[in-house]
């Protein structure tokens, strides 16, 4: 199943880039422009370059784009297409903080800092599942929509939609950490400039 799903992130990225590019020419909201851009994006994603579809070139260098990043991109594409804002500011802030926290816990130790490897906890039911499940329920009680993204992540994990069989890869990836860093830094700088 993961082979088909591996085209989703590249497709969404191409779609978002096309929306960004063509958006300069004017507003592209509505079914018709979305359908046209979607078809063009799908065509580009499956177009073979050097014997491989363009999407698989992207997967060659990172096979596991997290469900969180995929969900953010999907919501962005939807927002540009139909003006539907699925993720409010609060949800996005929760997403950035969650991803950055997860990244800070995971990456330094997984890359060799100390003898403990938290990545190990992602291969089967463990403390990681309890923590993420607990956070999901807490966010639901707080009516924070990021909980839906976390539900999508555990659903994707159960269905093995990514090549990885490790829950961590469904929650975060290096690009998600980068996006979270940029988003939180720019938010911090904006606040700082407002105070000044």
């Amino acid at each position: 199943m993961y082979l088909g799903f591996s085209f989703v992130f590249p497709f969404l990225l191409i779609m978002a880039l096309l929306q960004g590019g063509t958006g300069l020419l004017g507003t592209l909201r509505g079914w018709r422009p979305t359908l046209i851009l979607g078809l063009i994006s799908a065509f580009i994603a499956v177009t073979p370059v050097g014997g491989l579809p363009l999407a698989r070139w992207m997967i060659s260098f990172n096979a596991n784009f997290s469900i969180s990043l995929t969900a953010i991109l999907f919501c962005k594409v939807l927002e540009i297409s139909f003006g539907v804002k699925l993720l409010d500011k609060n949800t996005l802030l929760t997403c950035w903080v969650f991803s950055l926290t997860a990244g800070l816990i995971l990456y330094p130790m997984a890359l060799g800092l100390g003898g403990f490897d938290p990545y190990q906890a992602g291969w089967g039911f463990s403390w990681l599942f309890v923590v993420v499940g607990g956070v999901t329920i807490l966010l639901l009680i707080m009516k924070n929509r990021f909980a839906v993204v976390l539900i999508a992540a555990i659903l994707a994990y159960n269905l093995r939609l990514l090549e990885s069989t490790n829950l961590w890869d469904y929650l975060v990836d290096p690009f998600m950490i980068l996006v979270s860093c940029i988003a939180l830094s720019s938010r911090f700088l904006r606040k700082l400039s407002k105070r000044a």
């Binding site: 089967g124 039911f125 463990s126 599942f129 499940g133 999901t136 329920i137 639901l140 009680i141 009516k143 929509r145 909980a147 839906v148 539900i151 555990i154 659903l155 994990y157 159960n158």
Partner: peptide, 25 residues
């Protein structure tokens, strides 16, 4: 999110985590 949706999503969460937990058990 209304109250009913929250309850449904909490139940969905519990079911989705019960899946890997059952194989662990």
């Amino acid at each position: 999110m209304n109250r009913r949706l929250v309850i449904i999503l909490i139940l969905a969460t519990l079911i989705l985590y019960a899946w890997p937990m059952s194989s662990w058990l």
